[in-house]
């Protein structure tokens, strides 16, 4: 299996910008009361989802978490369906049942329990290996996830049985409001290496660098070398959720200066860049507008989760 060149610069930029503008619109619209529940935005981390999932092939599985919008859009999920889901519309990804952090579509699975999805990802990898499908599982986690014990049970089994899973650890340096130095001992990479899972690690917001690292790791996973881990040190520009930001504004500003979108925009002709901006903004506006015009989820659509007396 040979390494392939990354998607073209404009495609990568457009994909990151779709996430950025979508999330900005979500944050900006929250106070207007059009959403149900809460949200966890991905602004600042776009290079991770786009770079990693550019290595994804049809049929591969993506397991995400509470901060799933970026993963979902990069996976190919519908922007309109995601907006509609946040607004509790019948046309939402899960018809208004799941909301922001419980998204399931095709081979994409997200759930709102931190770390709880990691054994699911490993189980899916075990199934795909057993069925010899050649599919790869992409399991996204954050630094906060590393506090959950079931993660380590999962890493152990993934390595023990040499399963086709890529663990993508996005270290955005905060578990909700708690900085990493207050919640994590030791090194992140050591956690994977303790289970003999090879780690590629980068302090980067460069989508092409992420892509290259991810591709090398995915090729290893796909060719049967067992699980691999990608540790990506990043930063989220927005709050954990909506208004819960207690970070030093100076610190946020420092990271904003190394913006993954700006970095990628610098590789593109400025006129083309502007055109992409306009197109994406139009796409986002239309997705939100259409979602707002969609009918609210109908209580009559509610069904029991299983047949009570089969």
């Amino acid at each position: 299996m040979t390494l392939e060149s990354p998607p073209d610069d404009v495609t990568l930029y457009r994909q990151m910008l779709r996430i950025r503008r979508f999330e900005e619109k979500v944050l900006a619209s929250f106070s207007s009361g059009i959403f149900y529940g809460t949200t966890h935005t991905y602004i600042g981390q776009e290079a991770d989802a786009v770079g990693v999932l550019a290595c994804h092939e049809e049929g591969d599985i993506v397991v995400s978490n509470h901060r799933c919008h970026g993963h979902f859009l990069a996976y190919g999920g519908s922007m309109h369906a995601l907006a509609a889901e946040l607004m509790g519309r019948a046309t939402g990804v899960t018809g208004g049942r799941g909301g922001s952090q419980h998204v399931q579509w095709k081979d994409f699975y997200a759930n709102g329990i931190l770390g709880g999805t990691v054994p699911l990802a490993v189980g899916m990898a075990l199934a795909e290996k057993s069925l010899n499908t050649g599919r790869v599982v992409f399991a996204f986690m954050g630094d906060g996830t590393l506090g959950e014990g079931v993660v380590y049970e999962s890493l152990n089994m993934a390595s023990l049985w040499s399963l086709p899973v890529l663990f993508v650890l996005e270290n955005n340096r905060y578990a909700q409001t708690t900085p990493i130095q207050l919640h994590l001992a030791g090194e992140i990479s050591d956690r994977f290496q303790a289970f003999a899972i090879p780690v590629a690690e980068a302090e980067t917001v460069d989508v092409i660098e992420v892509f290259k690292l991810a591709q090398e790791a995915v090729v290893k996973v796909r060719t049967g070398e067992g699980p691999q881990a990608l540790v990506l040190h990043t930063y989220r520009y927005g709050p954990h959720s909506k208004g819960d930001d207690t970070r030093d504004p100076e610190e946020v500003l420092k990271y904003r200066k190394r913006d993954p979108l700006q970095l990628q925009a610098n590789r593109i002709d400025p006129d083309l860049c502007k055109r992409v901006e306009v197109e994406v903004e139009t796409e986002v506006d239309e997705a939100f507008q259409r979602a707002q015009n969609d009918p609210l989820a109908d209580p009559a659509s509610l069904t029991l989760p299983l047949d009570p007396t089969p």
Binding site: I61, P119, A127, V150, E153
Partner: peptide, 24 residues
């Protein structure tokens, strides 16, 4: 098809869910 596991009850139930999600 019979897999002996580590002592990881949460983990193996989670793995079972993942396998079941993929049709086993």
């Amino acid at each position: 098809r019979v897999i002996t596991t580590p002592v990881s009850e949460a983990g193996i139930v989670g793995l079972g869910i993942g396998m079941a999600l993929r049709g086993l």
